[in-house]
Design a protein around this nucleic acid. Sequence first.
DNA 1: CGGGGCTCCTGTGCGC
DNA 2: TGCGCACAGGAGCCCC
Length: 268
Amino acid sequence: MPELPEVETIKSDLEKVILKKKIIKVELLDKKLIKGIKPELLIKEIEKTTVDQIIRRGKYLIFVLSNNKSLVFHLKLTGQLIYGTPDKKSRIIFCFDNGKCLNFLDQRRFAELRLTNEWNKEKGIIDMGPEPFDKSFNLEKFRCMLGSKKTKIKPLLMDQNFLAGVGNIYAQEVLFRVGIHPERPVNKLRTQEVENLYSAIKGVLLEAIKYRGSSVDAYVDTQGKKGGMEQRLKVYGRAGQSCQNCGTLLKEMKLAGRGTTYCPKCQK
DNA sequence: CGGGGCTCCTGTGCGC
DNA sequence: TGCGCACAGGAGCCCC
């Protein structure tokens, strides 16, 4: 499940290898992943262009091409971008002028690839909330965003139109680290808790980037290697295990249709 | 506006 | 042992 830290890891790895490289050939082995454009047209538009810039926005990865169009990737649950030689499980292959290629794989076929003139006007991006590491996302702004909403904090943290890049793994981790129950209504958060939450969002994401993401489900980096963050996760995927703080058994619940693990004693 | 439920898809893991 | 079915989940969408 690639969230902000995983996509950021892919982005910085790819910058080292495909920036300014020319796409000489595109192989579309699974047209389902292409959205909003005829597959044949996509090939025609992007072959012979170079990748001028790579941008991450939330969980989206964007290649700005030399013809001013952009490839917009979303890996969803099981998408992978692996650089090197062609892979038999590839659904789309981008071949570069250095003889290497970028393989777009996806077990569950939820991932998407779009081609657009203005990536920032794309559905899913245009209304997206602030980037957690943008200067504009300060504590004051965060308080303002929370306002006096009555909604439960965990689904809100995962709402991409509220804040960009946080998904099911890191929303759970952040809440554990600040001792806040996933169902706590936002307007019941104390001033200090909001501040803790703000710091924890940045802290957890930064730690996950440092450890190159969490390899839960299918996530691997562009070399096919696993991340190092999964063993540092304190609640995600650990229902039934003992809380690392207090030893209480971690509980699992469904919240807005998503599995949610928390410590019933530490998180109030 | 908010929340619930459904949809897409396929490998996994469970129960019988 | 093997079959079949429920389940997981990001995000858009519909509905109330």
